[in-house]
């Protein structure tokens, strides 16, 4: 069906709408979409970000502990210069993410209430670098910390001044599933572990 006919059918249905089958129809839409609030918390954004990330099985690592945290990592795909990686880690070309131990990328934003990071491809960053390797190491510049995912979703031009990229993701902790007998398992498709470093 072409677009015109498809939409015309909908127009016709709406023009001839029956009264709703409910005694309590919805109120008119509010002028502004209400914000999703989290319980108030006075602590610093980075403290709360670390706590929220830990709650969803991620880890916030102090910069001076990065070396020991990455001791087991032999190979990595790296899309950012923001983090100085230990010398023993071999840097693989970006199209080799599938065989890398870790993907090291930059967060465009990070949400304190949920431990969420904003990831997006660019001239340097692939979609798959943060997704294929078993470990995702994400560098979070202090000035991109915000309160909630709503602060990102309602303010996208701040994070993407040149317009939206073809793909961006809000990622909260490692890949997770509860499909096997309601037992939570990690890393079924994406990273098994997520490690964040605040810069």
């Amino acid at each position: 069906m072409n677009r015109k006919a498809f939409l015309a059918r909908l127009e016709a249905r709406l023009a001839d709408a029956a009264p709703p089958a409910t005694a309590h129809p919805p109120a008119p839409a509010p002028d502004a979409v209400p914000r999703v609030r989290f319980p108030p918390d006075e602590r610093a954004l980075e403290v709360r970000f670390g706590e929220a990330l830990t709650a969803i099985r991620g880890r916030l690592v102090p910069l001076d502990e990065l070396l020991s945290a990455l001791a087991q990592v032999r190979t990595a795909v790296v899309t950012t210069d923001a983090l100085a990686l230990p010398d023993h880690i071999e840097r693989l070309p970006l199209d080799q993410a599938e065989r890398a131990d870790a993907g090291v990328t930059l967060a465009r934003a990070a949400c304190a209430a949920t431990g969420t990071v904003l990831l997006a491809p660019s001239e340097r960053e692939t979609r798959l670098a943060s997704l294929l390797p078993p470990l995702h190491v994400v560098a979070v510049p202090r000035d991109v910390l915000v309160e909630t995912p709503g602060d990102v979703l309602r303010d996208l031009p701040r994070f993407f001044p040149d317009g939206l990229p073809s793909a961006f993701s809000l990622a909260s902790g490692p890949s997770k599933s509860a499909d096997i007998d309601a037992v939570v398992t990690y890393g079924v498709h994406g990273p098994l572990a997520v490690l964040a470093v605040i810069l």
Binding site: T126, P165, S166, A167, F168, S169, P174
Partner: peptide, 18 residues
């Protein structure tokens, strides 16, 4: 908040790597 929220606007751009 869901673990992954993936937001797609069109296919890959020329400047993007994948």
């Amino acid at each position: 908040f869901p673990t992954y929220v993936n937001c797609l606007t069109g296919p890959r751009r020329e400047s993007e790597l994948d």
